[in-house]
Amino acid sequence: MELRQFNGQGIKAFRALIDAEREKVEPRKPALVAEPFFLEVDAIANDPEMTIPVPGGEEIDPKIQFKDRFHMGDYLSQVLPSDLSVVQHSNAGLWAWVSAIYLRQLLERQKKGGRSKLWSAYRYIPGEYQKFRYYRHLAFMSFWLRRAFGEEVAKFFLSRPAHAHSDAMEQLYTQDRDFLASKGLMKAAVEMYIDPTTGTMKRNALGKATPGSARRLATKIAKQLQMNYDLQSMDKNEIYALLPPEFDDWRPSTIGA
């Protein structure tokens, strides 16, 4: 189908549908929605009165099934226009529309009952930029990590189902100044914490008290190292050389042997 985005009326209508469901539950619980809700969303996403074509946009496949968030980000980074002004977070019309056409995949389906969990609107409609909220937009962040950081880093954060906000994102992405800013550090993190056979994060990698965990690396060790070293200019092996022994068990055996 043609790549489109919501106009102001479309965003308002999409938000109204979400808010109407969210008002039925307590703020910290998911609203449970079923097929009639999705059909209403489909209707506005396909309504020419509520959408406009995306400048420079081509075709997008609304039927594609995403294996995980990385797949979603990878696909969107291929089919969306390259012009940043069109695809950035502040273009709420685009990101709300993309969320609308893939909404069935962005909501976790209940194991029993067949209904799906609808959370706060900011997961589906970008709001004002807020440092500790913008990264929770499921579709945008999948796209942005793939586009801005490349395959390796994107896999680190996005090896999760399309509907899942990742703990890695919440715990580690927010440490962007110290952690993501160093390519060498990110390469070491991918090597240490991603299981190469499954492509998913190793057990306890996000443990708060686990020695050598990714969480400790991002929230404690990287903060300290970047006070003393220019991590941005260091490669992976130079970073390994700085890490204390608690990281030894996580490192590939060939490194530092």
């Binding site: 002004s85 003393n228 070293y229 220019d230 991590l231 200019s233 260091m234 130079e238």
Partner: peptide, 23 residues
């Protein structure tokens, strides 16, 4: 992106062989 808030850090970084990368 036009809504991104920029942060800056000015650094003097050692370029001596023995201490390369040290702030």
């Amino acid at each position: 992106p036009d809504n991104a808030i920029l942060e800056f850090r000015l650094k003097l970084v050692s370029n001596e062989e023995e201490t390369r990368g040290v702030l």
